[in-house]
Design a protein around this nucleic acid. Structure first.
Lengths: 345, 345
DNA sequence: ACCCCTCGCCCAAACGATTTGGCAAATCAC
DNA sequence: GTGATTTGCCAAATCGTTTGGGCGAGGGGT
């Protein structure tokens, strides 16, 4: 077992001091080193297979090149994966690593974990929630480099990135309007969160832009799961003046809506067009016909947050892309939308 | 901004040397220190709010108390969350942290990432795949503390943890047998992976134990997604001697099977009982009626792997729980199983 | 011949802990 | 009272880097 080789070994091999090796390998600006020496050092390092000990470097520089992703609940949503993946790949691309901590909504536990991360010289924090919501930054993170991920603070000076719920809602309704639908119901989530507010706003904006009247009776509120979607769809389909299209708050509600439609003998999309939200592959791709839906930019949000966070750490302390950013929600077209049929009302 | 306080500050405050502070705070065995001094040191540390700098400690001890979770594809499966959560919580419980790296099946990239982790003195590795399969350990990890997660090596000396596919398959079929079913079809995955082999073996074992004959015509193979389940179910439901129950390779196939059943006017569970596998909440809980299914122990596998890994690092180098472990797959009962109806064949 | 630059490199002090090997003082044996 | 032990603590080395401040050699100007 050959001993792991240190900078000192490289220095001896190249016949220079460790200082010079460090200067060369790190391309320290303003240091004058002969080109020949420079080459010799690099050759020695390569020959010996030298890799710097990051722990020692961290101790000296007080920088770890490690980011922490703190989240409320990693497990409960299938989006977590994409957000984490976006963050991880962006970090890796720049030579950084990502620590992962799940705090499960317990502030005391959260404080301890932040403590543990700070002990390890973590350079920055991603504070993520697993669905878009408003949060308060924990005191322990105040003043540290941090970006909110899929969450937003009341304090506008805290940078954050969230999906463009309004734009997504508008997109969903626009595709229905473009197919000729005029009676479009919105099966909304009953929780008062940014997603339900924003998507409703987008729904109304799209209708208004198209000169279609907004009817309160076409908007229902229920739980944001399959059962809620089933109930909401049942109510709106059994009501007077049945809509020709459904915009569902999310794909799970759309799943329930499919079931309600099937029970009523309505074929999708011929008798009823449906648009979802979230692009949960398992549902959207698993349903027959495939569900046209609006995707949340989880991967992009994770990547953006890491890029921005690293930027704000590396560059001058406070560059002004500190901001509350909103990322677009693209449409994913499948087969659940077509022109309204001529079935009598 | 008060300077962060070091062990030296504690020493001065308590009127002792840093050596003594270290001895006291780490409860170094075999060191004789007066109880009164001991108390004074602890009081000083508490008063100053001292927390040790882990980076410095790591440099000296060559231990980081950090684990790395390397996975092939974090994002593509919704199980990732639970496995990662299990690992993370187990680590946190012991004061360890978890780094996350996704290598996406690219060996060169994987090697670089492992390099980067080793530079940071990571103490151990979880090498995870996002579905149960056989892997070869990358050379870079050979000889290091590592446990395979949801993966197994041909080399039995490499510890690993995977789900008990055979037992899960048996469980699924047993619940159908117990309800009185005798003609039970198995909609299997066509890929030759441990899950499809194991679940089939469990299916056969359960039938045999119940004295029910195995008929090859009742086992079909297709893609392990919703479309595959739809096709497989259609084939078996339209065949001669229609089964009274379906055991689906996974919940996505079950979703397809539900659709095929609905199209044929078969009510679940009255006309057709269905059991799935994986317990994907979105599907199993979203379907009507809820899908009785077998859960994969992702959380438990993650936790077990971390516990075992830390154990093998902390304790004497090679304690012999190094082994290829299998964890049980529990049944999750919902509403898709009942006694077979009397509908004529 | 003297002074002053610039080049090219190196010394040694951090960074903040752990750990080895001691050394005085107190206690004990006799 | 003397020598041997035990007790309680500390000094200094170490882990592997980075970095601020130098320092000698060589060249150019006068």
């Amino acid at each position: 077992m050959s001993r792991t080789i240190r900078i000192k070994d490289v220095a001896e091999h190249a016949g220079v001091s460790v200082t010079t090796v460090s200067h060369v390998l790190n391309d320290v600006p303003g240091k004058r080193i002969n080109a020949e020496t420079r080459a010799r050092v690099k050759a020695s390092a390569a020959a010996l297979g030298y890799v710097p000990n990051r722990v020692a470097r961290s101790l000296r520089t007080r920088r770890s090149q490690v980011l922490a992703l703190i989240s409320d609940e990693i497990a409960t949503t299938p989006f977590a994966g994409l957000m984490i993946l976006g963050a991880q790949e962006a970090a890796s691309k720049r030579g950084w690593l990502l620590m992962l901590v799940n705090t499960g909504l317990d502030p005391a536990y959260e404080a301890r974990e932040i403590q543990a991360l700070l002990q390890r010289q973590v350079d920055g924090f991603l504070y993520a929630t697993m669905y878009h919501r408003e949060v308060e930054l924990p005191d322990e993170l105040a003043g540290l480099p941090v970006i909110l991920l899929d969450a937003v603070s009341r304090d506008p000076s805290i940078p954050s990135v969230v999906p463009d719920e309004v734009g997504g809602g508008r997109t969903a309704v626009e595709v229905l309007l473009a197919s000729g639908h005029r009676r479009i119901a919105f099966l909304n989530n009953r929780d008062d969160i940014p997603a339900s507010r924003g998507r409703l706003e987008g729904y109304r904006a799209a209708l208004e832009a198209a000169g279609v009247g907004y009817h309160q009776s076409l908007v229902t509120y229920d739980a944001s799961d399959s059962a809620g979607g089933y109930r909401a769809a049942a109510a709106v389909l059994d009501g007077t003046a049945r809509p020709t299209a459904l915009f569902c708050f999310n794909d799970r509600m759309a799943l329930g809506a499919y079931q309600a439609a099937a029970e009523r003998g309505l074929r999708i999309p011929h008798d009823l067009s449906v648009v979802g939200f979230d692009n949960q592959e398992i549902i959207a791709d698993g349903l027959r016909p495939g569900l046209t839906t609006v995707a949340l930019p989880h991967y992009e949000m994770g990547a953006w947050a890491v890029d921005t966070l690293i930027g704000s750490i590396d560059d001058n302390p406070q560059n002004d892309d500190r901001a509350q950013v909103v990322l677009p929600c693209p449409l994913v077209t499948r087969a659940s939308v077509t022109a309204p049929g001529q079935t009598p009302g």
